[in-house]
Computed example of a mutant assay.
Amino acid sequence: MPRFCPRCGGLMVPVKREDKVYLRCQRCGYEEELSTKDAKSYVDKKSVEKRGAVIVENINEGKPTEEEKEMKEDYVKQLLDNLYESESEQEED
């Protein structure tokens, strides 16, 4: 199940840095190391090494609920926004 920031309530997105995975808030930048308990909720599907991002999928048996579908949709939108933003920043350099 996705985690939310304790400071601002934003979606916490996994990022890989220095061979460790952290959860980072996309709103305020708060970070915490991904705990062993939370790591079991994620499966590493693809790593974008150039940017150090990790795309994950929640392990879930059966059909997702409407709430889970909405959360996944929000997650994907935020992830794509971040990707486009970082690409445009690199093009400016």
Rank of each mutant, 00 (worst) to 15 (best):
E70K: 12
V21I: 11
V15G: 05
C8K: 00
E85A: 03
S47H: 08
D74A: 10
V54A: 10
S35K: 05
A39F: 07
K46S: 14
F4E: 06
S86L: 01
C25L: 01
Y75K: 02
Q26N: 13
E67A: 10
R7H: 08
V54I: 00
K45V: 15
S47N: 08
R51A: 03
R24I: 05
K50V: 14
S86V: 04
K45F: 08
L79V: 12
L23N: 02
G29E: 01
P2V: 13
E85W: 01
A53T: 08
C8G: 09
E66N: 03
V15M: 15
E61A: 02
V54S: 05
E32Y: 03
V76K: 11
K16V: 07
P2R: 14
T65V: 01
R17C: 00
E85D: 02
K72S: 09
A53M: 14
E57M: 02
S47T: 13
E85C: 03
E32S: 02
S86P: 02
E68R: 04
P14D: 02
Y22W: 02
E92C: 13
R17H: 02
C8N: 03
E73N: 09
Y42H: 09
P64S: 08
V48M: 09
G29M: 03
E32V: 04
R3N: 12
E85Y: 00
D93K: 08
K40R: 13
S47P: 00
I55D: 08
K20A: 14
K20C: 11
V48L: 12
Y42M: 15
E66C: 05
E73H: 10
A53W: 12
N60Q: 12
P64C: 11
S86N: 08
L34F: 01
M71N: 11
R3A: 14
R51V: 07
S47M: 06
G52A: 14
R3Q: 13
L80I: 12
L11I: 07
K50F: 14
E67I: 03
S35T: 06
T65L: 04
